[in-house]
Write a protein that binds this DNA or RNA. Structure first.
Lengths: 344, 344
DNA sequence: CAGTACTGAGAAAGCGTTTTCTCAGAAGCG
DNA sequence: CGCTTCTGAGAAAACGCTTTCTCAGTACTG
């Protein structure tokens, strides 16, 4: 006979009654505690199986003080980069029996602190992914979030691993590649102003300009999605630049699409580069020259750092820096004679 | 002075002590119960604020019997379709104060039941997205998962809303479009064998063949990602078909990329169609003719159904059927004179 | 054979909340 | 002024589990 507790689900008490033992013994058996007589253990297991008993995770969590869940806060779940991080994280965590709770801030930086706090309280740890909040806010928030792993952001607080991609180096590699192809007038289609990774790219470009005084590098406003790139066609053509560094692959794809509509040849007339090397970058026409970021791997590493934190292990490498790899494809080519500023 | 309980976090007891009242009163105040003297309530609130007290969600969950979390099981988090569903679901749920726990089965259908059960126990409800398991398994599992919302799968069990996209109709629309353009030899690049949505497409094609006896429709084996499409170039060329119905947009993109490498013109030589209308479909070269599925909306509806289930509301429309919308772009065009089977 | 050391299982105390139960004290009524 | 009826807050139970504490009963040891 199947008894049902108040919540309508089968609880440890039901199994205990059926097996004729105490809850404590059922718990011991379920947790592989070997101080139970094998015969009784078998009886308990049989009862549990017959009732299809599964321990209630909430009760367990309360008793054990852990939820076997980690949270991740991302600025925009529509962004392939964050999707890839989520995927890598989720996969790695799953292998250790952990689940992932997601929180999307929809690029509303004022929501981030609240979301992060809520998610953290429900979980054993939190991955904060490219937060858009200010440094000051971040520093204030960080202590309450431990165990915490930061992605593409750093903090002065100790014990917080930080995984950052060296966007500055990547953008310099891309710019260098274009210059080698003979381009002397470049334009950078910038990303979201609050994005720290955009800041890193800008720093990289400053360094690049200092090292290559003969090269012009123009700055154009932008964003992080297709439409940004597509909408920037006029600005790009007006700039007279022959080499365009798009904030990321999405922007580059939008731009290439817009250029195609205008009959501008890529890379014949203008070379375009992206950033990230999302899977689609191999399948655009022309295929996209970009800086490959080992992003799924980054998600996996985020979990490894998190696991070390949760287990309170010594962590030899608290955080790491990822070097993008230049991925030269067909969207970049030799520069034509310098263009003069004109409409296409 | 900040006291810390065993777990190191501030609990309701700390607030109670500081405010000089009982836990019960603190709880009442925190939950907006108005049977508390305003003056005492103010004192409690002040104490809570000063200690930065935030109720422990696990304790709350146990007492209230709800977690304010729903789970979603997807076959592959790398698939843009499932990402979009997740996004729509997460966004809609967040607006009602619910969070989403994700579980990725990595297309391992034997894992699905376990993942689903685990996720369900941790959450107030579960969204099962395009499960790959057999009908028999599904029917057996469903009762233990309630409240449950199914996506792209149906069940005989009652009380389980099911949101399905009419892939059969969509693929017929696409085929019809190609035939109107003069194509008489079509090929379908199939998806994963266990995918129910692939089955629906096949059914649709059978219906189409019956209605258009003069049109040849060949079946080619495939999958669901870029590489499938890219790897199918030979088979496609060998088939002699001039109109290719790819399983989805990803496959179509892979195929177009491969055709481009072979110097085959799309749509001049061969027309290609996708399915789903993922955001990238507007930005391929040529832009991709496809059947648009309102997928983010579907995720939102999934939440609405789930909410109704959780609140035990009357549900007028338990589940719904989504009609894809033909999205004609540049990858489909008039047929050339019928090709003979030959290598490109 | 008395005394000590184990073994194994039940009783009970948490874990952090919410909520029912209970009961002082105040207010209202005749 | 004595009685009942409220009001509001504390005590305690409940949620479902783990784990410590406790203590029979058995198995050793000298």
């Amino acid at each position: 006979m199947v008894r049902r507790s108040a919540t309508g689900r089968i609880g440890i008490a039901d199994v205990a009654v059926k097996a004729g033992v105490s809850h404590a013994t059922v718990s011991r058996v379920m947790n592989g505690n070997f101080t139970v007589d094998p015969e009784i253990a078998a009886r308990v297991r049989a009862a549990a199986a017959e009732l299809k008993y599964q321990p209630n995770p909430v009760g367990r969590s309360l008793a054990l003080g852990k939820t076997d869940t980690i949270g991740i806060v991302v600025p925009d779940l529509a962004n392939p980069t964050f999707q890839a991080i989520l995927r890598g994280l989720s996969r790695a965590a799953a292998q250790d029996g952990y689940r992932v709770l997601i929180a999307d801030s929809f690029e509303v930086s004022s929501e981030e602190a609240i979301l992060a706090g809520e998610a953290r309280r429900r979980c054993d740890g939190l991955v904060l992914c490219a937060p858009r909040m200010s440094d000051a806010e971040l520093e204030e928030l960080v202590p309450s979030l431990h165990p915490l792993v930061l992605i593409n952001r750093t903090t002065a607080a100790s014990g917080v691993p930080s995984l950052v991609v060296d966007y500055g180096q990547g953008v310099q590699d891309l710019a260098g590649h274009l210059v080698e192809l003979g381009h002397t007038r470049l334009a950078f289609l910038a990303g979201p102003p609050r994005s720290a990774s955009n800041g890193l790219r800008l720093q990289g470009l400053e360094a690049f300009k200092a090292a290559h005084p003969q090269v012009e590098v123009l700055m154009l406003e932008g964003g992080s999605d297709f439409d940004t790139g597509h909408g920037a066609v006029d600005a790009v053509l007006d700039s007279g630049a022959t080499g365009i560094l798009a904030f990321n692959d999405l922007v580059a794809m939008g731009l290439m699409s817009g250029l195609h509509e205008r009959g501008v040849d890529v890379p014949g007339d203008i070379s375009v580069t992206g950033f990230d090397d999302i899977p689609f970058a191999r399948y655009t026409t022309p295929t996209l020259t970009t800086a490959a970021v080992p992003i799924t791997e980054l998600g996996q590493h985020a979990w490894q750092q998190m696991r070390a934190l949760i287990r309170k292990e010594e962590n030899d490498a608290p955080g790491s820096r990822y070097q993008p790899r230049l991925e030269i494809r067909a969207s970049s080519g030799p520069a034509k004679a310098p263009r003069t500023a004109a409409h296409g």
